[in-house]
Structure formats: structure tokens, C-alpha cells
Design a protein around this nucleic acid. Structure first.
Lengths: 246, 246
DNA sequence: CGGTTCATTGAGCCACATCAAGAAGTGTGG
DNA sequence: CCACACTTCTTGATGTGGCTCAATGAACCG
């Protein structure tokens, strides 16, 4: 389910300037380089389990993962979609509060707990970067709470597609000639439903509804084309200040 | 709506060992003491407005506040209930992402942006404490997402009462002789509904239902007595590991 | 080609929203 | 101390968005 992967030089790393290491200088980077390893997880593998120990930290280098919790009766809620350069693990606590599961194949840059916590203490550039990233995630989590608590199924789906398009655009721009945006869903309908706080059937129906209304084009069930990004944003109950794509 | 309040010595401060200053030594505390002021906000006053500038940081010393967002059509979702020793404001960003509004009278310990950001850079004890608090809030925000996304109205209300009882117990224990717990709701039914992602009517009905089922006792509409804390926890879809109350 | 997984669609139902009316509590002025 | 206004809370009647149950369709794979 998981295997060690050859180490990439930090300078060749696709998340070099966006991950926890973003603000590190050459010397700090060298320290990280000495202690890091790369791991690759197969689709469906767990990177962490709720309530279980987690004695290492990971930065996602490629691939996507969900952070979720499952109640005893089987209800599941995804609380975050993790993509490069997101960070997994929490300094100062050795237990994971949520399940983290690979969607496709996921490669991470990994640090053992003791070594990394020492670096957080000694390296202000890592500590402050970690704080910034945590605050960004906090804002994102709260934004998503608004979606979960107050939006309709249609708005939830539109909001998700818009935010996913924004995030994917940060990596490789997928802007099309006509001004549209294309994106690939890293989730199945069921995983999508768990993220939106809906059932799989409602999610599928709303997908169909957005398609019939011309707001999205489904080339395949997980290949989404957004012909008019602004129009879809408007469906998401946006007040227009969500920030531009690209 | 807001007024300056006499300064309390940090050593006499009720949140001395729980706020951002918790890990500070005497010298660091002296630095904070030189730049801090106290402010008191009247009930209903805004401590921050979504999308507007916020050129200072605040630690709640007493009172409660909500952090919320209101959509154009009036739908509102509260994303956090702020109580002592919670922190308001975000180093590195001069705009608030949410409205922050005083529920009753709120007193805060306030720092201007420039001075505080300088201290975050220079004082590792403040930076690491801020990181820990942010990570705690992140966990709490994600926990709440599970409630919003997957729980029934009854479970939402039970989960809220349980979490509020846990938080109030951290300040002053309100454990009763018979093993019950009493608490005072800092919110109106409408504010409660906005926090739970429900309407005021459903919230009121569920309150009545919990009362009729003997899970809570309403001495007044905002005075709640929980005769059997475990029983109420069980209603909240808890798997029992939520941590004991005191 | 049959088995398996994933997605779509339909029919009916229910939890919660909406609309509407009172009741209870609180503050103000006479 | 009461009359009145106002806010907050509760309760009832009805509507509906999304859930549940069920079947079919589509893609993938050995």
C-alpha cells in the first residue's frame, strides 16, 4: 500500500516554494534534505487514521487525499481535500483527529516527528510558514462551514467546483481558449457527496442539473468543463469577491 | 459602542495562562504589557467586519462573541463561538474574513497590528503559542463541519450543548452535586440557529424535545441544566472519546 | 462476455423549512 | 403599579428539498 520512493532534490521539487519549506533558505533546506524521505501511497491507502498515532509529518507532493471522519453508524463527512502542497500532521500532538485517505496515487515528502518538531523550534522560517498555512486552512475550513450549514445542494456543488477550479489553477493553469476552465474531479460521486454533506443520488442529480442548465459540460463523469466561470460562481451564492481564477 | 478600559496587570489577568501570552516569561510579558490596551464592547457591537480592515489583534478576556458570515440574501452561518481566551485577528492579513460580533458585553486585551506582528517575529513563545491555538481552532472548525454536514437537528443541538458545557467547565466548573452540569447560553435562539445551520423554529422545537425527553432542564430559556451529561453526549452521536468534562 | 464498480434516474417519504399565530419575558413611560 | 410596546421564544399547520429505496445504465477488467 505504501512504498519508499527515491529522494528528489528540494530544488527540483514541484512544491518547493509553496510547502512548509517555502520560506527556507539554502541552509535550512539542507537540514530538511538530510531528514526527509519520499513515500508513495496507493489509491485508497490511509495516510492517517482518526484516533491513531501519527509519528511523522507529510507534505503532499503529488496526488490528492481526503481528510474525513466516519461516525459509528457509517455517516461520513469529509472536512478537507488535500492537494499539493498541503501539510499532514500536527506538531505537538501525536494523534490524528481525522482519517486521511489517498484518492489516487499520492506521493509525499515525509519527516519523522522528533526531527521535524525540533526544526519547528529551531527554524523560524518553518514555524512561521506553518502558522500561515494553518491560518489559511482555518479560513478555508470556516468558509466550508458556511457552505455546509447554509447552502442548497446546487449551491454546494457549484461552490465546490469553483473552489476546485481555483486550486487546480494554482498548479497548472487549465484555462481554455474560449475563456472556459476544465478540471478533473479527483473524487468519485460518493466521495464528493461526503464532502458536500449530501447523498450520492442528490449529488448526481445536481450534477445533471448543472449540465442541463449549461453551467458545466461533462465529457466524462469526472471530466468537467466550465464554459463560463463567472456564471458558475454566481450559482454558488458568491458575492463576487472570491478572487479571480489565475 | 466601545470604550477604553483600565489596564489590568498581566499577572492578575484571568486568561494569563491560556491566551497567546500563556508561554511568555516575565520579560516577554513586560513587552506585551507596554503595548496592550483593554477595550470593552457593548452587546451587539462589531469587533470586526467581513471584508473590512482590521488593524489590531484581540484576546477575549471576558464575554462571548460570534464569528459569522452573512450571504447577500440574508442567510447567516456562525463559524465559531469565541470565548476567553480566544484570539481575534490574523497575523499577515489586514482584513477580516468574517464578522465578529459581541454577544453580551465583551472585554478584550488589544494589540495594534505592527507592534504585535513584530512580537510574533521576535518572540518564539508567542509564535508557537499562536500556532498551537490556531491548530486547536482548526480541529474545532473541522469537528464542527462534521456536525453541520452530517448530523440531525437533535444531534446538532446536543453536540452544541455538550461542547459548550466542556468549554465553560474549563473556566469555572459548574458541576452540580448530583453529577449534573448547568450552563448559561450566551446566544439567543436565533444566534443558536445560525450556529447550528437550522431555523429558529427547528432549534426551539428540538430544545423542547430534549427537555421533554429529560435530557435537559430549562429553568429559563437560556439557563440549561444537564442532569446526565453522558446521556446528552450519547444523543450527539458521540463515540465516547470526546474527553471528560473536567 | 459476465462480474464488479460507479453513475444515473425514478418514485415516494420525511426531516426540516416556511408561514402564521400566540405566549412569555423585558423595558419604558405615565 | 400598570399599560403598552417590543423582543424573544414557543407552538401549530403546511410545504418542499433532499433522503431512501429501487432499478437501470455505463465503464472497466479479467
Amino acid at each position: 500500500m505504501t512504498r519508499l520512493t527515491p529522494i528528489i532534490a528540494c530544488n527540483d521539487c514541484p512544491i518547493r516554494f509553496r510547502a512548509v519549506c517555502a520560506d527556507c533558505d539554502a541552509e535550512e533546506l539542507a537540514m530538511l534534505e538530510r531528514v526527509k524521505t519520499y513515500r508513495t501511497y496507493a489509491a485508497g491507502a490511509h495516510l492517517a487514521l482518526a484516533g491513531e498515532g501519527l509519528d511523522h509529518f507529510s507534505s503532499i507532493v503529488s496526488g490528492c487525499a481526503t481528510m474525513s471522519r466516519t461516525l459509528e453508524d457509517g455517516r461520513r463527512q469529509t472536512v478537507g481535500l488535500l492537494m499539493p502542497p498541503d501539510f499532514i500532521g500536527r506538531p505537538g500532538r501525536a494523534q490524528s483527529a481525522f482519517d486521511v485517505q489517498a484518492l489516487g496515487e499520492v506521493t509525499v515528502c515525509r519527516f519523522e516527528r522528533r526531527a521535524f518538531e525540533q526544526m519547528v523550534r529551531d527554524t523560524p522560517h518553518i514555524a512561521t510558514r506553518l502558522l500561515t498555512m494553518s491560518l489559511d486552512e482555518l479560513d478555508a475550513a470556516r468558509d466550508w462551514a458556511v457552505v455546509l450549514g447554509r447552502m442548497t445542494a446546487r449551491e454546494k456543488l457549484a461552490a465546490f467546483l469553483v473552489s476546485l477550479a481555483r486550486r487546480q489553477a494554482q498548479g497548472s493553469t487549465a484555462r481554455l481558449p474560449g475563456g472556459g476552465v476544465s478540471l478533473t474531479l479527483p473524487l468519485t460521486r460518493e466521495e464528493l457527496a461526503d464532502h458536500l454533506g449530501l447523498t450520492i443520488e442528490t449529488t448526481s442529480r445536481q450534477m445533471t442539473a448543472l449540465r442541463k442548465d449549461g453551467l458545466i459540460d461533462l465529457r466524462q463523469s469526472r471530466e468537467v468543463l466550465i464554459p463560463d466561470f463567472e456564471a458558475l460562481s454566481a450559482e454558488a451564492g458568491e458575492d463576487g469577491d472570491g478572487g479571480p481564477i489565475v
